[in-house]
Every structure is written in structure tokens, then in C-alpha cells.
Design a protein around this nucleic acid. Structure first.
Lengths: 152, 152
DNA sequence: GTACTTGCAAAGTATTTGCAACGTC
DNA sequence: GACGTTGCAAATACTTTGCAAGTAC
């Protein structure tokens, strides 16, 4: 079976881009840290371990390229930094996020909970939905059960 | 009946802050442009018309203060700028946004469509929701009906 | 007078751009 | 050899901070 990186390579080729070693290293870092929400700087530091000669600008350019191709989504959780999150293969909508205001942890919800809401938006507001971004702020399970009241 | 600005003044006082002329001018600009999604720079330019001597740093400080008090929400639509949006009085959740990918217009949905979704998140993921941010990307009614295919 | 607030300038971050050099077909 | 790509340095954009001066009670 074809690997994820192979399919990404084809997507790049389809758009007349090459999967250079720098780009490959960047994509690998994203795949290996799929659960995280890395900033460009984070990605840069991790890529450097594989390819020490890479420049920060290249990482930015690669991330921009991947965003354009909808391979990753650029998100912003309100701190001053953009973060990059791999989109599930073939997903037409971006997944949801849960941010804990106690511990700061960011969890993902891959199932799409907005089907009905999108129908309402379409019928009531005449707006054809193509994609969505949904983030919840609240208290995660482990902070609740540990009765954690230490403010981070 | 008490005006909105009066109530905001009380909120500030309740948190031991003053409604200085600069802060008042800033709040007025936000009230007068409630439909828009102004950046700090936008607010600064508009406030300057009322209070020419104000500094950009003061606008930033005021917006930060208002964000802290939950009078405004700081949002980011993916261009590099933070934007500031008045929260409805007494609303426990932030309102939703519809961004048209044709014309770029940003519309607001004040009714809360996420009640059921939040229940699912609470029961299925054990996450207690305190607030949410929901943005849709798609095609607005007027772009659809005008058959607008001019890419901006 | 004390404590909060302001304007300005400087500093700080994050991100983008210019450009010569490199690599690949 | 043309063209996409890269690394570095410089430039840009947005936001925050330091500080002396101003203001309100």
C-alpha cells in the first residue's frame, strides 16, 4: 500500500512542485507530530535535527505551500503564533479543537459534529458552507478529575 | 434607560479601571462599527478622528483591557492581524462568523447554534465547555445570486 | 501624594522578501 | 542552460514594553 508521504508527493507533483529533501523532512516532521500543534519555529527546530542546513524561510515557504494544497491547515489559537495542523486525508472539513483553560492542552475531535448546524446555516442564512473552524474552550476531563486548581 | 457605554463604564469601575477619554473614544468607535471587524490599526485611525493625540500603544492597551473584561473578543481570520469584535451584552458564548470566500465579507450569526453540539462534547469527551469559536467559510447569498465569478 | 494612565520611542516577535548560489532535468 | 528551490540576511509587519510626564482623587 502507498504511504502517506507518497500520496503527498503526488499531490505536489500534480501541482507542479517537487518533493525536495527539505520539503520531505518538513512533511515527515508534521507526520511524526500529528497530534501536536507546531508553530513554524517548532517545525524548524525539529526539521533541523534531520536536515541541519535548512533555513527558517524554507520552512515557512513549505508550510505555506502545504496550506495552499490543503494538506495542512494554518491555525491560530490566540497567542501570537500560527500553528500548522495536518488535515485528515480526504476530509472536506477541518477537525475541531478542545482547548483546556486549566492545563492548556489542545485535543482534537476528528468526527464532524457540524452536519446539522451547517444545514441550518445553509437554509436560514443562504450561505453555502465549504469549510469550518470550531474551537471550544473549557475544562478537560483530566483537569476536572484531578481537581486541578493550579492556574498555569 | 442606561446606555451601553454607561454599563461598560460600570464594568470598568467594577474592575478598578477608569473610563478615560481615550478609552471612551475607543469604546465608542467599537460601538459605532459594531458590524465590522476592525484591526487595532483600524481602531487607532478611527479613534484619532475623535481624539487626535491618542497613541497606538494606548489603543492596544485598551483593546487588551476590554478583551480581559470580555467586552470584546480578539479574533484572527488568518491574515496576520488581530481583530476586535464586541461581544453581545451578557452572552456567555462568542457569536459565529460566516466568511465569504468570493467577496471576503464577514457576517455574524448572533443566535447560538451549538447547544446540542456542546452537549455531545460534554458527554462524549468529558470536556466542560465554557466558550466557543466557530467560523464558516463558503459562499454568501449575494455572491451566489449575482452569479459572481470574479475572483477577488 | 499615590496610583493609574498616557504618548513616544525603542524593543521584541513573527513572518516575508531579495538575491545569489545550487540542483535537476 | 532554464527554472524551480534554497539559505542567508535584510526588510517588514504587528504588537509590546520602558519610562518620564500627565491626571484624578
Amino acid at each position: 500500500m502507498e504511504s502517506r508521504i507518497e500520496r503527498i508527493k503526488k499531490q505536489l507533483h500534480g501541482a507542479s512542485y517537487k518533493l525536495t529533501p527539505q520539503r520531505e523532512a518538513t512533511v515527515l516532521v508534521l507526520l511524526e507530530n500529528e497530534e501536536d500543534h507546531l508553530s513554524a519555529e517548532d517545525v524548524f527546530l525539529l526539521v533541523k535535527e534531520k536536515a541541519p542546513e535548512i533555513g527558517l524561510a524554507t520552512v515557512y515557504r513549505t508550510l505555506e505551500l502545504l496550506t495552499e494544497l490543503k494538506i495542512v491547515d494554518k491555525i491560530n489559537f490566540g497567542d501570537g503564533v500560527s500553528r500548522y495542523d495536518l488535515r485528515q486525508e480526504g476530509a472536506s472539513r477541518f477537525h475541531h479543537h478542545l482547548i483546556c483553560i486549566e492545563c492548556g492542552k489542545v485535543a482534537e475531535i476528528q468526527e464532524d459534529l457540524l452536519g446539522d448546524v451547517e444545514k441550518i446555516v445553509e437554509s436560514r442564512y443562504g450561505f453555502t458552507v465549504k469549510d469550518h473552524w470550531l474551537t471550544f474552550h473549557g475544562i478537560c476531563q483530566s483537569c476536572k478529575s484531578s481537581g486541578n486548581d493550579s492556574k498555569k
